[in-house]
Amino acid sequence: MLMAAPLADWRIGSEPYYQPAGSEVALFEAAYARRLPVMLKGPTGCGKTRLVEYMAWRLQRPLVTVACNDDLSASDLVGRWLLDADGTRWQDGPLALAARHGGICYLDELVEARADTAVVIHPLTDTRRILPLSARNELLAAHPDFCLVVSYNPGPLARDMKASTRQRFCALALDYPTPELETQIVATEAGIEIGMAKLIVGLGIRTRRLQGHGLDEGASTRMLVHAGILMAQGVGAQDACRMALVEALTDEPGTRQALEAALEASF
């Protein structure tokens, strides 16, 4: 019996919607052509993950995504021994899986992982392209198609990425799209009219003016799409934006009151 391809489940089946804001697609392709590790920088919900999904589909590579957090251990990334009926069995972690079989490994919000976890990627990100699996006594040479992509939100409350990690990557700086482009994205993703998408984007831009003045970050493009989806579902514009933006952004009474008033002014 033929074994299924190990990364078959990680392939992107259909083309994800992605609206390029500049030359990021060509730049990503150039980096991938030489298998350079890529770091995507940008605020929450500006399209970093969507870009990676789109590129994985475009490059026809499986995409193994890991959402990094404080509890993520090095074993969670590289793998561990498990028990089965016959004894112990090695289980590759997502990083080893992608490296072994030639996928794109996407470590979302790498800085959220502990420093001792983040360093396991170092040997994979330089010319060695290896992953030492010390628990298994194996030196895993990365598949020629393997590529590492990490994302990082350099917001005001973000942790700093260690220079020794940071300097291993080429970086693409993403940001919220221009109002026109963002309107197009919201209209397309949510399936609503351009005029209504424009009003949602206008409110989103207003929330971003409060960054550092009551909000740590303004509304992301993702939140604006959520508002549009609620409207497409038949929810009124103000209720949709209240649910998707105002209530989701803050609990601080003064800022919430100001956002609510800005919402009322916007529609």
């Binding site: 207003r206 409060l210 009551g214 003064g254 009151q257 100001a258 008033a261 800005a262």
Partner: peptide, 17 residues
């Protein structure tokens, strides 16, 4: 006081200045 506190962020949100 709540009105005084909410007016500056309200203005900032409406107009960029």
């Amino acid at each position: 006081e709540s009105v005084r506190a909410a007016l500056p962020p309200y203005l900032r949100a409406l107009w960029s200045g």
